[in-house]
């Protein structure tokens, strides 16, 4: 736990110094909304169409962060330094997944208002708590799978390609649940109460991926 906090603190400090990821992720989200506006040629969206746009946009932005998550460790010897220390290897998974979760939450802080401004149905406000609940859960799956995929991809030659290629199919169950879950919340006369089925699916998928990643992660760190 203490080790994970140490790494997390270092990661956040590094991001604060370099601002390599967050601004790019937020920018990409905003520009994607603009592109969707022209691609779909609609001023406001509702229902499943809106849900799809939001999910895909967040996914693309998340992918940027996922690709860069381990680059500093790989290029500046962070892996070796970590492996030389007498600490539990799983701390790296916990720290990186938490860092990614924080980046995603910050990204959504920008992306959600932009979405509301550019595309969302007029009365999104009443659905907001349920929407946030869905994103909080889907961020979990994104963070864990993102960390896992990034740890694999960073050691390949084509890491920018391998990451999304493995990551996207693995994320699909979470994407399906998020998109179908928030679709009804974004209809014009939404009730604002979330679908229990999709929340449960997301929560279970979070749990499933977390356990699986925990079980195999050590093998990715070994030299």
């Amino acid at each position: 736990m203490r080790t994970a906090l140490t790494i997390l603190r270092k990661d956040l400090l590094l991001e604060l110094r370099t601002l390599e990821m967050l601004p790019a992720m937020a920018m990409l989200a905003v520009i994607t909304f603009v592109i969707f506006h022209f691609g779909l040629s609609r001023d406001t969206l509702s229902g499943q169409l809106a849900a799809g746009e939001l999910t895909v946009t967040l996914l693309f932005s998340a992918m940027l962060g996922i690709n860069r998550l381990f680059v500093a460790e790989r290029e500046q010897g962070g892996f070796d330094a970590f492996l030389l220390a007498p600490v539990d290897r799983s701390a790296m998974l916990l720290a990186k997944a938490t860092a990614l979760y924080i980046y995603l939450a910050l990204l959504e802080l920008v992306a959600l208002p932009a979405f509301a401004l550019f595309a969302a149905p007029p009365h999104m406000g009443s659905s907001l708590p349920a929407l946030i609940l869905f994103l909080a859960l889907s961020n979990g799956a994104f963070a864990v799978i993102g960390t896992f995929v990034s740890a694999i991809a960073v050691h390949t030659r084509a890491r920018d390609l391998i990451g999304p290629m493995i990551g996207l199919p693995l994320l699909l169950p979470a994407l399906i649940a998020t998109s179908l879950g928030i679709g009804p919340l974004l209809t014009v006369h939404a009730s604002g109460s979330p679908s229990g089925k999709w929340l449960a699916v997301l929560a279970l998928y979070d749990l499933f991926t977390a356990l699986l990643a925990y079980a195999v992660f050590d093998f990715l760190l070994e030299e």
Binding site: T3, K10, L14, R17, Q76, G77, D80, F82, A85
Partner: peptide, 24 residues
């Protein structure tokens, strides 16, 4: 280990790097 790679993060200061390793 004192290898070819310094194992220091370029964008952190020397003190920050050492504090990170000290915590580890």
């Amino acid at each position: 280990l004192l290898g070819h790679e310094p194992l220091l993060y370029r964008d952190l200061s020397g003190r920050e790097n050492l504090i990170y390793h000290a915590r580890l």
